[in-house]
Simulated scan of single mutants.
Amino acid sequence: MTAPTAHLVSVGTCLPGEPVDNATLAKLVGVDERWAEMFIGNTSRYFAVDLATGHIRHSLADIAATAGDRALTQAGLEPGDIDCIVMGTATPDQLMPATVNLVADRLGIDNVPTYQLQSGCAGAVQALDVARTLLIAGRCATVLVIGGDVCAKHLETDFDPGSRTSAELVNYVLFGDGAGAAVLTAEPLGHGIAIRQVLNRLVGLGKKPGQVIDWFGLGDRHSDRTVISEDYKAIEAAVPGLASQMFWELLDDLGWAAHQVDYLLPPQLSGRMSDRISAEMPAPDARRINVVRTVGNNGNALPFLQLAELTEQWQGPGRAVAVAVESSKWIKSGIALERT
């Protein structure tokens, strides 16, 4: 008897506005172009906020709805075909209502269960895990899964560049905004890509967070706390090992060998770090799918941007493994795909 599984039918993505290269960023916030390329390795990113004026051009709901609509169109489905929506994000538009419900409203989806997971990069994989579980349990037949973040709203636009340290300016170089979506079904359609396994592991017991995005209410809005902070050295030290661990956990769980993996989607932290992690991970013959260098670290959008690139490149039968690591409280996650 064949074990129940879920299937990846389509992927849609949305990157707001035009790409902002390092030369433009240097003029806007005073970042040194050479430092940005050597230290971070990102060459461009997309912002939902105009850094020159501070004007918010797109909300997370805007770009997430666009990504969802594109995923539906690619799958040949209508909003009424969706039985459930699951969304992962670290930067919702508001605490209430949940952004997933704003997206559902814009897409014309109603009277279905909706779930929003508050998490960083691993949130996209967590959302896929919830969707897969619902499909396998027979609770739903078709699920729309969304991941996205608008990090730029946490970045100051009115400041003297000379007053900022490298640790503060790194956020402008590292992060970007974006959204992605995927249609998952219980029965194979479209690409015929089966989701064989999804794993999520919290491994931060007793460890300090590697990244913090703070929230301010009316009572503490004048706090001197930093909005975004990360321990870059701790991230550099921990992520490669966590990525390798998740890779082997997925393979061990499925009985796959490393040489049987045709595509590898490594964690997307920055251009430089992702290249390093990619080189150190097993499966030397697997084709790497790295996108962060040109789109910036847009959090929960990144796994979907990788999946979109994967489905464009993937021809014929094969296997793919995607790994995402969240440094906030240290979460390792991964997904194994097979095309027969």
Rank of each mutant, 00 (worst) to 15 (best):
P266I: 14
A71N: 07
Y232Q: 10
G219W: 11
V11W: 07
L117M: 11
G76P: 15
D252H: 13
S44F: 00
A257I: 01
P317A: 10
A167Q: 14
A181R: 10
I331N: 13
G217K: 03
R139K: 14
N101L: 04
L135Q: 06
L265D: 10
G76A: 08
P267T: 03
L310S: 02
P19V: 07
Y232W: 14
V86F: 11
C151P: 01
A301R: 02
Q116R: 07
V212E: 08
E33H: 02
R139A: 15
A179V: 03
C151I: 15
V20G: 01
E230S: 14
F47K: 04
R70A: 14
L189Y: 09
T99H: 03
W314Y: 00
H55C: 00
G180F: 08
L269A: 09
P317I: 02
L155G: 10
P161Y: 13
D160T: 10
Q245E: 15
M273N: 06
G76E: 11
G80L: 03
F47D: 09
F247A: 11
R201H: 06
G12E: 11
S44Y: 02
V103M: 08
T66R: 11
T66M: 12
E338I: 08
M246S: 12
Q74F: 07
R57A: 04
Q126C: 10
I289C: 09
Q315M: 03
A182I: 05
N290I: 15
G204V: 05
S166W: 14
Q306L: 00
I331Q: 13
N297G: 09
Y172H: 13
F175D: 09
A23G: 03
G120R: 01
L218E: 14
G192D: 07
A48T: 05
I289R: 04
H58Y: 11
L77Q: 11
I146L: 15
G162K: 07
V86Q: 06
D285K: 09
I289Q: 06
G255P: 15
D83P: 10
G334C: 06
L269F: 06
D253E: 14
K27T: 09
I335T: 08
F175N: 08
D285A: 13
P266Y: 10
V112L: 11
T43F: 06
L242D: 10
I228H: 06
L264K: 13
F47T: 07
T43L: 04
D253L: 11
C151V: 15
A308Y: 02
G204D: 08
I109L: 02
G30C: 05
D252E: 15
R57I: 00
A75Y: 07
G316H: 00
D93V: 03
Q116L: 07
G41M: 06
